[in-house]
Amino acid sequence: MFDVSFSELMLIGVIALIVIGPERLPKVARTVGHLLGRAQRYVSEVKSDIQREIDLKEIGDIKNQMQDAARSVETSMQSSVSDLKAAVNEPTDSLRQALDEARTAVTPTAAPSTAPGDAAADDTARIPAPQAPEVPAAPVTDQAAETAPSSEKQA
């Protein structure tokens, strides 16, 4: 606090001894010591209170910075998610549209069904069953009769 050297303290002590006297000097020295101790504690408490207030202000500033950063990250994540959803939904929507167009082209009078069970029944009803190709019947010739076993010829 104060820059007081040892020689200055000795000079103050000698003057106090002369002015106060040897009987009251120990009592006055004790009182001055207590007052100086209280002053030092008061100064240290004020310093710690000021430091605490500074720390609280810094913590509040850091908290606000973190909240701002969290908000910016949240908005960027939401925009990324919406972009991804759009990227995924775009091909799906175009496929659905193409499928709907194909359905209307196959059966223009039938309305598309919304129930999942009905869609399968409608699809099978709309698509004609594949037909087996016709195979011409082979004519019966004498060769077939000739190659038959001899027991069949006799019968």
Rank of each mutant, 00 (worst) to 15 (best):
L56S: 08
G60I: 03
D61Q: 14
D61K: 11
I62C: 03
I62N: 04
K63I: 11
N64D: 10
N64W: 03
N64E: 08
N64T: 05
Q65T: 10
M66P: 04
M66I: 14
M66H: 05
M66N: 09
Q67N: 15
Q67T: 15
Q67P: 12
Q67L: 12
D68P: 00
D68E: 06
A69F: 05
A69V: 06
A69R: 02
A69H: 03
R71P: 09
S72I: 09
S72M: 10
E74T: 08
E74H: 12
T75R: 13
T75C: 14
Q78T: 12
S80R: 08
S80C: 06
V81P: 01
S82T: 08
S82C: 02
S82F: 11
S82M: 07
D83A: 15
D83P: 06
D83L: 15
D83T: 14
L84P: 01
L84H: 07
K85S: 02
V88P: 01
V88C: 06
V88D: 07
V88I: 13
E90A: 13
T92V: 13
D93W: 03
D93R: 01
S94L: 11
S94D: 14
S94V: 06
S94Q: 15
S94R: 15
S94A: 11
L95Q: 03
Q97P: 02
L99P: 00
D100I: 06
D100Y: 03
D100F: 11
D100E: 15
A102I: 08
R103P: 01
T104Q: 14
T104F: 09
V106K: 10
T107E: 09
P108H: 04
P108W: 00
P108K: 01
P108N: 02
T109E: 13
T109L: 12
A111W: 06
P112R: 03
S113C: 01
S113D: 00
S113A: 10
T114C: 01
A115P: 00
A115M: 04
A115R: 04
P116I: 01
G117F: 06
G117R: 03
D118L: 10
A119Y: 07
A120F: 04
A121H: 03
A121L: 11
A121V: 04
D123W: 00
D123C: 14
T124R: 11
T124C: 01
T124K: 09
A125N: 04
A125Q: 07
I127D: 00
P128Y: 00
P128G: 00
A129S: 06
A129Y: 01
P130D: 05
Q131N: 04
Q131P: 11
A132D: 07
A132S: 12
P133K: 04
P133H: 14
E134I: 11
V135A: 10
V135L: 12
P136M: 06
P136T: 11
P136S: 10
A137M: 07
A137E: 13
A137Y: 05
A138P: 12
A138C: 07
A138H: 15
P139V: 07
V140L: 15
T141L: 04
T141K: 11
Q143I: 12
Q143G: 07
A144M: 07
A144P: 01
A145E: 04
A145D: 04
E146P: 00
T147E: 15
T147V: 15
A148K: 14
A148H: 04
P149C: 06
P149G: 09
K153F: 03
K153M: 08
Q154G: 15
Q154D: 10
